[in-house]
Amino acid sequence: MSSSRIPVLKTYKLYIGGAFPRTESGRYLPFAAPSGRVLANICHASRKDARDAVKAARAAFPGWSGASAYLRGQILYRLAEMLEARAEAFAAELKAQGQPLPAARKEVQAAVDLLVHYAGWTDKVQQVFSSVNPVASSHFNFSMQEPTGVVAAVAPDRPGLGGLVGLLAPALAGGNTVVAAASETFPLTAITLAEAIHSSDVPGGAVNILTGVRNELLAPLAAHMDVNAVVYAAEDGAAWAEARVQAAENVKRMIRRAPAAPPSPYAILDTLETKTTWHPVGV
């Protein structure tokens, strides 16, 4: 009897504004395992999906950037807990997409550790990079960091999980909200990560994840007037150069990052702005 049970397959959808909608375009891309067997019909996200995601990210920005650094740290740590708890599922899914199991297990562990690392930065990055400035007049003067705003993140092909987590974690740690374009080689992992994010107290809209063709998503995100920065870890130099031209229109911060860059507070700093405040000293 048990042998005749039909397994329940998962539908892989987009993650926008804390919900899992299908692409508004109705388009899909069959995604096959190395064996050729179709694993899923992933959503082929459209420009409109990208715009919707930006809108959701902007709406989530006041809440996420306004949350205390302690709270953001706890939520990122919670996400690490969720990943750890689902480590085997993530590893199995990476394997199904072509990653050998031992390497997949290592990658999941590395992603968990990366999240723990960045969770610990949320309430320290300000202390490392801010300053009280000894101006030569009777003013109290200090410089501190604030998040840039809505960050578009383009994940590398691989590592399938670590590549995306390595872009999301520093941007979130700094208080930004994110619209991410997933790896085309490991798209299923990106959506499963969205499910973990969804159960980690990350507010809806703070992270939005789109699957499909990254260059099709990069163009509208780079040109979008309500995106403040783009972090790019894919490897298409021509697409990146074209995106930089588009991005000039609202002077976006354009950050190129290595696919498996080691964690660094400077990755957080890339998506922060420095604000200097002056006040007279007197009675």
């Binding site: 400035n133 604000k275 200097t276 405040t277």
Partner: peptide, 23 residues
């Protein structure tokens, strides 16, 4: 914005970072 003057305006100093957000 990158520089906020509270109860003062247009003050500059070499030790005080200056520069913008957005455009």
């Amino acid at each position: 914005a990158g520089v906020l003057w509270a109860n003062t305006y247009n003050k500059f100093d070499p030790t005080a970072p200056f520069g913008g957000y957005q455009e």
